[in-house]
Amino acid sequence: MGLKTNTNWTLVPGTTRDIDAVRERCRKLVRRRAMVSAGVAAVPIPGLDVVSDMRLFAQLIDDINHEFGLSDEQIEKLQPKFRLIAYEAAIGVGGMLIGKVVTREVVTQLLRRSGMKVVARQAGKMVPLAGQLAAAGIGFFAFRQIGYQHVEACAKVAAKLVTAGVAHDGALARPA
């Protein structure tokens, strides 16, 4: 179950059931990190939540990619034709963070896309208690939504690789 590895091979989840199990583990991880994000958002220090979210989110993306066998290093270990399938599938599902080294700039760009939520959270902090609770709620739902989207994108890419035969036979991947 989960990421198939041995001393010589690094592969994506091997079956649809494995993908579903990895998806659920990653969704739990997203929810836990979203709770941490919400907790930080409730602290009435402007900007603290944005810095925290950037760090939490970058680590979350790396963890999800790794769980699905789609980190930069893992994809590079695939045969070239499977690497191409992985990147084409990632583009096809809008998974701009699949197989990428997540940098501060990439996370900043992603958080900017949800800019209204960040502005609402910051504005909410100006109103005592109710504003802090609103900021925490907005932070939780925004973080969770972005995380879930990435999990689903990774699951689709992993499914395409399974369909292509990557995880069914160790001979289809390159030695590590």
Score class of each variant (00 low, 15 high):
21 A>M: 09
21 A>E: 11
21 A>H: 07
21 A>S: 15
22 V>F: 14
22 V>W: 02
22 V>Y: 04
23 R>D: 09
23 R>T: 14
23 R>H: 06
23 R>I: 11
24 E>Y: 03
24 E>S: 15
25 R>V: 11
25 R>G: 08
26 C>M: 08
26 C>R: 02
27 R>P: 03
28 K>A: 15
29 L>G: 07
29 L>K: 09
30 V>H: 01
30 V>I: 14
31 R>K: 13
31 R>S: 15
32 R>E: 12
33 R>H: 12
33 R>Y: 14
35 M>S: 12
35 M>D: 11
37 S>P: 08
39 G>D: 02
39 G>V: 12
42 A>G: 06
42 A>N: 12
44 P>Q: 02
44 P>W: 05
45 I>Q: 00
45 I>R: 00
46 P>I: 07
47 G>T: 01
47 G>C: 06
48 L>N: 01
49 D>M: 01
49 D>C: 03
51 V>I: 08
51 V>Y: 01
53 D>Q: 03
53 D>I: 00
55 R>H: 08
55 R>F: 15
55 R>W: 15
56 L>K: 05
57 F>E: 07
57 F>P: 02
57 F>W: 12
58 A>V: 09
59 Q>T: 02
60 L>G: 15
60 L>R: 05
60 L>C: 15
61 I>N: 03
61 I>E: 00
61 I>K: 02
63 D>T: 13
64 I>K: 03
65 N>M: 10
65 N>T: 06
66 H>M: 05
66 H>D: 12
68 F>P: 02
68 F>N: 08
69 G>I: 11
70 L>H: 07
70 L>Y: 11
70 L>I: 09
72 D>T: 08
73 E>A: 15
74 Q>T: 03
74 Q>A: 14
75 I>T: 01
77 K>P: 01
78 L>Y: 08
80 P>Q: 09
80 P>M: 15
82 F>V: 05
82 F>E: 01
83 R>V: 13
83 R>N: 09
83 R>K: 12
84 L>C: 12
86 A>Y: 12
87 Y>K: 04
87 Y>E: 15
88 E>Q: 10
90 A>I: 13
91 I>L: 02
91 I>G: 01
91 I>V: 04
91 I>P: 00
92 G>I: 08
92 G>L: 12
92 G>M: 14
92 G>P: 09
93 V>W: 05
